[in-house]
């Protein structure tokens, strides 16, 4: 318990430093001004959401091949945490877009595919509530999760392959893209912090799922007694 509180405190302190860096250390962008500071939360949240869904995909794939519950627990934990990051991404985007584009939302390839991704993983979590048998639930959701992941490379590639209202990539965008050095340092600091937060949340959520497994085994033991 003490260790858990300590890790949570470290995460909060790191996030506070990151917020300070985004609001006061990073230089003001010349075209968009202050509103561009949302970038340091928005873009890393998107990257970490995709990373969480990749962890979910690995868990789903491993469950299908091994049928070990721990992989199912990892899958659902990563999906839920990915949903939290994806929700932050979808909500902060329009706040940034409105003053810059003059609209809150547009159905371009990047935004639409990200919204579809959010819906796919919402369905993944809903699907799990509909099946009572734990083994059947794990297998059905793992197979569904593998197909849901197909949207992730589409989200990543959408701003590289198609002309969109959403800006072209400034991170890993090839020649002509990139950030001013201080902006880049703040961005990668945010990314690192959010990866730490993701690992912490997946760890916590995994512990919860493991406890659910324990409840089920105690109940089976009680029924047998």
């Amino acid at each position: 318990m003490k260790k858990r509180i300590l890790i949570a405190a470290v995460v909060v302190i790191l996030m506070s430093f990151a917020a300070y860096a985004a609001l006061f250390v990073a230089p003001t962008e010349s075209k968009m001004g202050t509103i561009q500071r949302i970038f340091y939360l928005h873009a890393p949240s998107g990257m970490v959401a995709l990373l969480s869904f990749f962890v979910c995909f690995v868990g789903n794939l491993a469950y299908v091949f091994t049928r070990k519950p721990k992989w199912d627990w990892l899958g659902v934990s990563a999906a839920e945490v990915g949903m939290a990051f994806c929700t932050v991404l979808i909500l902060t985007g329009p706040i940034w877009a409105h003053p810059v584009w003059g609209i809150w939302w547009t159905w371009d390839a990047r935004l639409t595919l990200t919204f579809v991704l959010w819906l796919l993983y919402t369905s993944y979590l809903l699907l799990r509530t509909l099946v009572e048998d734990p083994d059947r639930r794990a297998l059905i959701s793992a197979i569904y999760g593998i197909f849901a992941f197909l949207d992730v490379p589409l989200v990543y590639g959408s701003i590289r392959w198609w002309r969109t209202q959403h800006p072209q990539p400034v991170i890993m965008g090839g020649s002509g893209s990139g950030l001013e050095p201080t902006m880049a340092r703040v961005f990668w600091f945010w990314f690192l912090n959010l990866v730490i937060l993701m690992i912490f949340l997946i760890h916590e959520r995994y512990a919860l799922e493991a406890m659910r497994g324990e409840v089920q085994s105690i109940e089976r033991e009680a029924e047998a007694a």
């Binding site: 202050t34 509103i35 500071r37 949302i38 939360l41 928005h42 932050v88 940034w96 409105h98 003053p99």
Partner: peptide, 14 residues
Amino acid sequence: KNLGSVFAAYVIGW
């Protein structure tokens, strides 16, 4: 300009 929106985004995220 837009400082309120920036704070709103960070408050929502946190």
